[in-house]
Amino acid sequence: MSLAELICPAGTPAALRTAVDAGADAVYCGFQDATNARNFPGLNFTPDELQDAVVYAHMRGAKVLLALNTYPPAGRVDLWREAADAGARIGVDAFIVADMGVADYIARTHPQVRLHLSVQAAASSPEAIRYYCDNFGVKRVVLPRILTIAEIRELRKEIPCEIETFIFGNHGLMVEGRCSLTNYLTGQSTNMDGVCSPASDVEYVRGADGSLSSQLAGFTIDRFGADEKAGYPTICKGRYAAPHRPEGYYAFEEPVSLNLSRLLPELIEAGVHAFKIEGRQRSKSYVRNVVAAFRAAVDDIRAGREANIADLVALTEGQKQTQGAFETKKWR
């Protein structure tokens, strides 16, 4: 059976302490700049804050993983190198990377620090994963959210590194690290700037008929009737019209949240080493509830007890949830 580490989000120092106290085996976080894929206002760490966070986590037996998982545009690579140097100096337990240039730099300059391959690298085959393991010494791959459990089980036999999968939280539809939708509408890039459907470009506009449009950079991503709850305008979760679907439909996916709690025992059995909870942008109380519930469930499963899955299912209370690609190929 795998170790089934719980990898928890930390958007702020307070969220990091909360996650550690609630039982995280590791937390992941980023600096306050484009070097990570959650470069949102008010989030993330200064080097000093990260230093304190690492001390706090290590004293309690938890690891700190630093996300350097965006793609530096040419001419700006130094920002990523400096972030890696700072992380190494501070003593983070691993870097989460996507860009080959960044991976190469860390492998050569800081070989003592573990490298994890970010989901942003979109490595979804044994060959792609082995490319990163062979060339950069990657010790763990965060799998794209597109494989079924049966496929993960097979993959496990063919790669020389650990597997981490997302189990809970926001569920992106596009292959991570290959999506420029936000840049197309807003001019800010997910890959280069760490930005996705940014709040600064969001507007909710009330129509004469009482409907509410949720807009991103002036584009109506969805429109809601007076009796509907308006959602955030994430491009891949909007409603659009096609010639044969003039009424508008969720062309990519409904606004659902990933929740694999029911599949947790199977994922552990399939050999997944670590489970990642999405949500660096979420509140402390959210982090506390989700981490504590998954901690209890993973401990139960590892001790051979029946896990109280109902608590985990209830976490997405009021929200639609999905098991995404993990349960069946029909998702595709």
Binding site: S124, L173, V175, S180, A251, A325
Partner: peptide, 15 residues
């Protein structure tokens, strides 16, 4: 411009 790829086929989904 290619803006994104996915494991899911959106052509099939639309039908």
């Amino acid at each position: 411009a290619s803006l994104a790829v996915s494991a899911r086929c959106y052509h099939a989904r639309s039908h």
